[in-house]
Amino acid sequence: MSTGRLRNKVAIITGAGSGIGLESSILFAQEGANVLLVDINIQAAQRATEIIKRKYPDAKVIAIRADVGKEADVKAAVDTAIKEFGRLDIMFNNAGIMHPADDNALNTEEKIWDLTMQINAKGVWWGSKYAILAMRKNPTDESKGLHTGGSIINTASFVASMGAATPQLAYTASKGAVLAMTRELAMIHAREGIRLNTVSPGPLKTPLLMNFLDTPEKRDRRLVHLPMGRFGEAVEIAKAALFLASDESSYTTGTDLKVDGGLTSAYVTPIGEQALAPPTSLAG
């Protein structure tokens, strides 16, 4: 049920065709936002718009193809949002990769490192850059005497704060870059009313991670570290992004919102029958 938390706002979501991006696109549209769905896979983005339209026939959603690893594509996406919807209020820099050949410092090839940084770090830089330029043009809220600015949300990861159970050096380094970059940008642009925050998912049951954890042994090794004993769901991250996108988080900037089932708070995980019992329900 919609409560209109994003009514009349304009949002761009990258990586919108699957996983966190898809769930966020559905949720943002449900809450009243006009949404530009960006994905390198245009068919996936178009399928996402069809899903949204079936659920919410009045939703204003557009799908476009863009490679966030190319600056011109990122700028074009922001320009499209302005052209189609008139302004930009929310930028969710969510697109990213976890390459199957990403390994430790000895085995990761330079081309894998460079590709990961191009998409995961540079893509977020460019997305933030062009969103800031667009949000600076948003009008002032005369009732509050404040520039309306906007909200930029960047997808980091729990591995930006702690080591991963399996080697993925380029991915981990890229997400650390996202975390540090977002903090600095938040400080620079706070007085402009432009808020920047990260959301750091724990291990999720999404194609990105499941393709990486492609054996029962890899999955079990990751699960043993999770206090909740399960992988997260993409919609649980989308709900966190919704909070950061909405005016409910108007005094929140430079923050990393960890949605990780308690992983980064755990020194050790509990053992025994109670800890091994399956959870009775998912988070609401």
Rank of each mutant, 00 (worst) to 15 (best):
A11C: 11
S18C: 02
I20F: 10
S24H: 02
E31V: 04
G32C: 11
G32R: 10
N41T: 04
Q43W: 02
A48Q: 05
T49M: 07
A59F: 10
A59Y: 12
V68S: 01
D73Q: 07
K75W: 00
D79Y: 01
T80F: 01
T80I: 03
E84H: 12
F85C: 05
F92V: 07
F92Y: 15
G96F: 02
M98E: 11
P100Q: 12
A101F: 13
K111P: 00
L115P: 00
M117V: 09
Q118L: 15
V124D: 06
S128W: 00
A134R: 04
P139H: 12
S151M: 04
T155N: 13
T155W: 05
S157C: 05
V159G: 04
M162V: 10
T166M: 11
P167W: 14
E184A: 14
L185Q: 13
A186C: 10
M187N: 13
M187T: 13
V199R: 02
T206V: 03
V224T: 14
P227A: 07
M228Q: 09
R230K: 14
F231H: 00
F231S: 00
G232F: 02
A241K: 03
G254R: 14
D256A: 08
K258Q: 11
S265E: 14
T269P: 06
T280P: 00
T280M: 11
A283H: 14
